[in-house]
């Protein structure tokens, strides 16, 4: 059922910018069109690009927003989960709780 929804109507999660739009919904309470526009403006791309895996693969690489390892491609020298979230917080200009806690616990503040 999860996969059915993802294919029928989902933005695509981390393969696209679905997770970034979700962050603007959950932290700022933005409706979908406003959340998509906000993210597109911050990424410097079109709203259509946000649901396009090909466009977002490059955009996520350029901005260090994290990508999913696939069979033939690993990204060990690129940002991992927590590192990507540092970049996401910067790019979207929002605090991310796990990043803030990480900084505090690692003595980075």
């Amino acid at each position: 059922m999860a996969s059915t929804h993802a294919l029928a109507s989902g933005m695509g999660g981390m393969r696209t910018a679905g997770d970034l739009v979700a962050r603007m919904q959950m932290t700022r309470g933005l409706r979908l069109p406003q959340a998509k526009q906000y993210v597109a403006d911050k990424l410097g791309c079109s709203v259509a690009d946000l649901s396009d895996t090909v466009a977002m693969h490059d955009i996520r690489r350029d901005l260090g927003l994290g990508r999913i390892q696939v069979q033939d491609l690993a990204y060990a020298d690129w940002p991992g989960a927590m590192e990507a979230k540092f970049h996401i917080a910067d790019v979207l200009d929002i605090p991310i709780n796990s990043v803030e806690r990480f900084k505090a616990r690692a003595g980075l503040e």
Binding site: A2, S3, A6, G12, G13, D19, V21, M26, I68, Q69
Partner: peptide, 9 residues
């Protein structure tokens, strides 16, 4: 769910 089911959250 993140990597294989297209979850946004």
């Amino acid at each position: 769910y993140q990597n294989h089911h297209g979850a946004d959250m």
